[in-house]
Amino acid sequence: MEEGCSCFYSKMGTKLSIGLLIVLAIVLLMVRVLYVVYWCGKPFPKGASQSFSTLVVLGSGGHTAEMLSLLSVLRKDRFTPRFYIAAATDNMSLQKAHSFEDSVAEKPVVKEASSQFMKIYRSREVGQSYVTSVWTTIVAIVHALWLMIRIRPQVILCNGPGTCIPLCVIAFLFKVMGIRWSSIFYVESVARVKKLSLSGFLLYKLRIADQFFVQWPQLQKKYPRAHYVGCLM
């Protein structure tokens, strides 16, 4: 009876210690996540002189036009090399980015700009069924992970297309795991006047975006951590 009892207690003990370890791991992870969230959105110390490798996530049509409007006023020497990513089904956006980079390279001040152009699979095309989208979502996430491991950007610029969500989430996980610290800047599209887009809402609420910009004052009132910057167009 006594033996059975001690055996029972030692089994309980190992179970308890495994449990404690798991709890400890979870607590440590939570602390790390909170630490990362705390430092997200905190500005860097003044006096930066190096350049940042930059990932630019392009949407379609209007989104791309707004992004290029922003890129045209950013100093190219500070954001280099530049990696452009657009949805695999979107032929126009990378083409526009190409001609933008060509127009920049012509200016004598800027040295040979290093830029790369990549396509990413979308998790779900318009009208696709939800059953098949489980599989395509897995493919899209693996592809996004592969691209992010290759690029490991220090700065991410995005403005709305759904493709930016997996990329930004992976960037956040990289921060938590200590693989790469990146700053995520999100500019909500000018077409959003009263309500954020789903991408914008997620990046704002989950505090994944380091700095969040809106183009209408009404939105800034609703989302006080956002910067109101007027129209990009």
Binding site: L70, V155, V229
Partner: peptide, 21 residues
């Protein structure tokens, strides 16, 4: 009157620690 990305660029530059031009 068309707008541009200057206000966004200024905030991004300051955030990353670059001096104002």
């Amino acid at each position: 009157t068309p707008g541009d990305g200057t206000p966004v660029a200024r905030i991004i530059d300051r955030f990353l620690g670059f001096p104002d031009d």
